[in-house]
């Protein structure tokens, strides 16, 4: 069967199945298990209403449990076994990883990514949000800066090859160097700094995201506070840093953490730009070198990423619980 047909069939089965499940499970609950008639009608309605939320939740909870919660445990368990999966070796995979210099480089680079990308993207986002705020063509400017959000990491990597290429007739950087009489070089082979060249691709993609959210937050600041500051003689910089930024600090933190999480998942850029060569591996790309070869190692790397995410996860859950009260 052709995949297209299979796809159409899946849509029909998936959507029909969902609608059917919700519709018929409700009918069965109301008419068969707890019918709202007879001597116990009132009690039955109450009981049905206690069960119903779980009917609504079941498919989502099942999928979430199977596809996200179970893998956390499953991956950790698998990481305690060797390559074949038959022999229990405890934390052996982790010890082996930390003994490897590539892994340590990947951890170090990943920390650089986690520090630099969210900081730079938030900074540029805030800058653009503030500058375009009162501009007549601000919306056009914003939507152009927002555009890279729609581009895949693979596409973005190719786009940036036309900037970084060592060939002065293709890469912009080397063309500028060439016109100034300097020899061409490959930016992606300059150890240490090449990490930042790769990071900038992600900054380029994520600035739009930061900008959209921060610009909405800036609009939400009460005008009176700004007017009062101006009457008191504050200059535009003071208004921005002492009045506006403190008021949107909460949103800045949200943007920052969201991008941090994203950074810990992105492997595409390193994979397509350098393949991890020249000291540019990060944990997600490093994991892919073990994928399909050594599941024990791969899951161990994945679990290290999980540990890095953990603080953000805890703070997010705390925040969510605070909002619910």
């Amino acid at each position: 069967m052709s995949p297209v047909l299979q796809g159409i069939l899946t849509i029909i089965i998936g959507v029909g199945g969902c609608v059917g499940y919700f519709y018929f499970s409700n009918i069965i609950l109301d008419k068969v298990i707890f019918p709202a008639k007879g001597p116990q009608a009132g009690r039955n309605i109450n009981r049905a209403n206690q069960v119903r939320p779980w009917l609504f939740l079941f498919p989502a909870m099942f999928a979430l449990g199977l596809y996200l919660a179970y893998p956390v445990v499953g991956s950790f368990w698998r990481s305690l076994f060797d390559r074949s999966g038959a022999n229990f070796i405890g934390l052996g995979n982790y010890f082996d990883l930390f003994a490897e210099s590539t892994f340590r480089t990947a951890v170090f680079n990943n920390l650089l990514w986690v520090l630099f990308v969210p900081a730079a993207a938030t900074f540029f986002g805030l800058l653009v949000a503030q500058l375009t705020d009162r501009l007549s063509w601000g919306n056009i400017a914003k939507s152009l800066i927002f555009m890279p959000m729609a581009i895949s990491f693979v596409g973005a990597s190719l786009i940036w090859r036309f900037v970084y290429s060592p060939n002065p007739d293709i890469g912009i950087i080397n063309s500028i160097r060439d016109s100034m009489g300097m020899a061409s070089l490959d930016p992606l082979q300059i150890q240490f700094w090449n990490n930042f060249f790769l990071m900038f691709i992600l900054v380029w993609i994520q600035t739009g995201f930061a900008m959209v959210i921060l610009s909405a937050a800036l609009r939400g600041i009460p005008e009176e506070t700004i007017e009062a500051a101006i009457i008191d003689g504050a200059n535009p910089f003071q208004v921005f840093f002492k009045i506006k930024v403190p008021q949107i600090m909460g949103t800045i933190v949200v943007v920052w953490t969201t991008i941090t999480i994203l950074v810990l998942k992105v492997f595409d850029i390193v994979y397509t730009m350098t393949g991890g060569n020249f000291g540019t591996h990060i944990l997600p790309s490093y994991m892919m070198t073990y994928m399909f070869r050594d599941d024990g190692r791969a899951t161990a790397v994945a679990f290290v990423i999980m540990i890095l995410v953990l603080p953000v996860m805890i703070s997010n859950i705390r925040q969510a619980r605070k909002e619910m009260r």
């Binding site: 893998p71 956390v72 492997f267 997600p284 791969a298 994945a302 999980m306 995410v309």
Partner: peptide, 8 residues
Amino acid sequence: VPLQLALV
């Protein structure tokens, strides 16, 4: 939760 955990 990082996607990488789910792969294997």
